[in-house]
Design a protein around this nucleic acid. Sequence first.
DNA 1: GCTCATGGGACAT
DNA 2: TCCCATGAGC
Length: 822
Amino acid sequence: MGISGLLPALKSISTRRHLSEFAGQTLGVDAYVWLHRGIFTCATQLATGKETTKYVDYAMHRVRLLRHHGIEPYIVFDGGPLPAKKGTEGDRQARRAEHLALGNALAAQGKSTQAREHYVKCVDVTPQMAKQLIKALQAEGISYIVAPYEADAQLAYLEAQGIISGIITEDSDLLVFGCRNVLYKMDAVSATAECISQADFPRITSDGISLHGFSLAQFRAMAILSGCDYLPSIPGIGLKTACSLLRKWRTAEQVVRVIRMEGKKSVPRGYLDNFRLAEKCFLHQRVYDPVNERLIHLTEPDGELDEAANAYVGPDMNPALAKRVAVGDADPISLRPMVDICPSFVPRVLKPLPFVVNGVGRKANDKGKGKATILSFFAPAKPGAPSRAPVVPIINSVPGGMVVGKASGKRSLAEEVDRDIAAKRKRLDEESRGAQSRFFPSSRQGNAGSRPLEVDGEEIEELVAGPSRLRGKENVPLDDEEDEEVVLEVEEDLEADLQWDSLSLMALSGCNGDVAEPQVEPEVEQEEGYISPTPSRSRDTEDLSSPIRPTDTPRSQKRMKLEKDVAGTESEVDLDVLSSPPDAPARRVPLLNLNVFRYSGLQPEGNVLVAASPEREGLLGADVDLLDSFGDERTSDIDCFEDDKTGDDDDEEEEEETEPPLAVEESATPTPSPPTPFDGDMEERAALESAARAEVVAAGWRDRWALSKDAGRVGLSTMRPPGGLRRRETTITPTGRHFPIGRAIRQHLHAQADASVPARSKPGSGKVKQTPLQSRRSLTFFDPMPMKPKGTGTSSRGRVSLPADGGDLSRGPNRFAQFSYS
DNA sequence: GCTCATGGGACAT
DNA sequence: TCCCATGAGC
């Protein structure tokens, strides 16, 4: 259940911020959160075995919302069960079956609403459902990855590597994994999220909880002691007790020893061993390294993990299989080829983003001329006027780059285009005989001046977004009854968006503000169940209006004020401008070319250029990049334990023998086998498929090992100046984005990671080989004064040393919370 | 004052 | 499934 009570305890340092504040950054997303909420919209269909992909729509809507605000999402899916989290699946299955039966009974009586309540409780997200979302992500060129085990660890790894700069989730575990910037409670309506930054930990002002003077290892120990997904707490120990005990006794081992000595609470037998295993899960869990395409530990352990620990943090798997899992071609649970439960769901290439086209095409001095509005866009084109040239989605516009769908081997893009164009023509012909849409002119009507395009050798008419967009509920156009004021407001917001998008999309399209060359963009129909994936521009999109930006229109400023009022604060919006200006190149580092998964059929060879984070400007006057510092602080307290070891740890197992709470289980890695051919007739086949889908849904997935999204309430926060996520030159550059990954790049990656380590924390010899995540030092949440703890000494590895009384450190003259190296 | 168990409501549309 | 409020027990 995550860390119970952690998020409420961090309330004082959480800030609700508008998504636009993170424009230009790549944010990781825990896909499970969205999928799980998405299945709420279609629980009945899922439970009854009907084919549906509404949950995909839900998630994709949020994906587009992020992109709308200039954020590049990086979707991370949960993978296979971690032995540490295997729970009582039997009970859950029984409960699900019960709810399913109840739901069916109620449905039979016509009580659909009541039935739904039970259906909701019997469905869960499965890897096969995740696969449907992956298909949609692939179609829109969104980065994604399926973690070998837990998405949490994978997200932490991606952030530590600089591939993402923050994480959208609901799971407080992310902070325990060492993530620096986590966004909780993303609200699509207000386009905001509550941001918690690790750098703010020392400023926590919560009853009973203070992390001032804590190291990250102590923070982790506090979380584990209070009860986490990998280890239940000692009965009677919660977050506050764990915090105060750790403050007093420094290490978990000493805390446990003290609890035992006091004798008031019963410490389960083997608790300390299990604590170490849990800690290993947070530190060394296996994740997928998209650069080297193999499994890797989140942070490399100092030595070899023993057999139990090795299984506990996720068994290794061969690189080929790991890759198949990572791209979604293999079921992360069974490790067999992924079964497509909705083969008819074939999301297609993204339609052109009209405002993007205008935005990109508009030059700076065009401002105000030919003001593009939602009405002007949808209005019939004037005869002879140049048409709006669709821009091919970026994934297709890369010179010599990938073509969506082509690599799948199932069809070629040209074939798709031909087919879609034929269908489109047929439909337009039919429409031209009937009523004409005011907003969606037919190609003949609206493209008098269009340039002919050539597809597969055949000259065709250029197509603009057409009637198919009307099909999806996300694309309901304004109608004549629309209130005029609303229309005007939309126009104003749109204007602001155009300016914004012209900035963000220039980078995406690799141009410098010049008009983008029109490129072929096939008009395709979406299969039933899939909403046209036009990004966040539709009438009923939750946030159509412009985000809060420094350059916004008066209308948006009004809205900003409104939001300020709602938030009950005076200063947030004024202060929370972009966390760092994009034009601050002083510490810009060379771009890295990291391999992430963008769709190219079976071969995930797409790359994205990711800039390593520029070092953050000194925070609170310190000369240290606190965020970067923390990224490497993953040293286990176990090290300290060893230092402190008195030899009596093993003697503490005196309690009555009980079932260890964390039994290590064998991890099965069955050999992948092809699906069995099906010989039945069509009806029977359909029925069986339907039943199979229902079974898959009912069987559930994630809760077999990792259900637990305990995200305590974090309310509106104390407002503060910006300082959360770093803005970085991420993801896309005008020079392109699909370069092969070479050894030089990997070397560069390592070199850069080394370079980010402050010189004083590097080993003196300089000969020690370092990997980006190698533990190199520890940090403390707090005083910057170079303290020389007496008696305890400083370890040769640069570990922070705390005096016997950990609380003493807080008595430094500077009460500013910072980190100090020893 | 802290922990823990429990029950009701929301989730999205 | 999660969040929140509430109340009992220590």
